[in-house]
Design a protein around this nucleic acid. Sequence first.
DNA 1: AGTAGGACCTGGTGGC
DNA 2: TGCCACCAGGTCCTAC
Length: 293
Amino acid sequence: MPELPEVETIRRDLETKLLGHRVLGAQVLWEREVGYPDAPTFAAEIAGRDILALERRAKYLIVHLSEDASLLVHLKMTGQLLYVPRDTPPHQHARAVFALDGDRELRFVDIRKFGRLYLVPTGRLAEFAKVANLGPEPLAASFTVAALRALLASRRGHMKPLLLNQEFLAGMGNIYADEALFRAGLHPLRSAESLKPRDIARLHEAIVAVLEESISHRGSSINNYRDPAGQKGYHHVHLRVFNRADEPCLLCGTPISKIRVGGRGTHFCPRCQRLPRVAASRSHPVTRGLTRS
DNA sequence: AGTAGGACCTGGTGGC
DNA sequence: TGCCACCAGGTCCTAC
């Protein structure tokens, strides 16, 4: 599941390989993965453009091209962008192939067909709905404790779904939401309005730390994530709660709990991430038992 | 504004 | 061994 650290790793890798090169042509193998414009137009329009820059916004990879066009890629759960020699045998799950100068190809491989490609005018990128409604970047210098406090001031509801909301904060997914809450000592069902200044400061530190640590390990490969060379990241061995249900907490030894929150598998330590009694009875009457487990 | 549930998809897994 | 139900999750959509 590519989240911010995985997409950032891909961006950095591809930047060293793609800058200054040209897209000779594109072949769309599964038309529904092209979100805009229609697939034939997409393929025709991208041909002949030079690659000027690579940017990441939330979980989107943005490839800036010449003549006022940008390619937006969302990998969703199983998407991969593979940079390979042209004579590499075809991938079974390739959904689009971009021919590049220099006998290379960029292949968009996506087992589950959830990923999306968009080709939009660079000048109108900011108003493109997918980008326009995104919240702040957690690794930007402007994302301070005060900024997080301001974001939280107008929010209610549980912390886990809030961290997954891309309009609240851009780039967190299921893995790093669980990891950040663990690191901050906050229960996933903790209500946003119940956070004290001390909690917000810890959460801020936790969000930045888990994302930066993961980037330094080239992301987490729980299932399908691969970098442009087809290699796994190695941060998943450093995860403290995600995918560790029933295993001992690394801090206190208590078995990690797994519950469903907002329809998502959610991992936490019932001892290190206690739900305050008041918040428990007010926001979620059944959760008091969960803190014991 | 929030919550829930369905839709989109396929591969892997566990039960029988 | 084979079959099948079910699960995984990012985002969008609808309904409440």
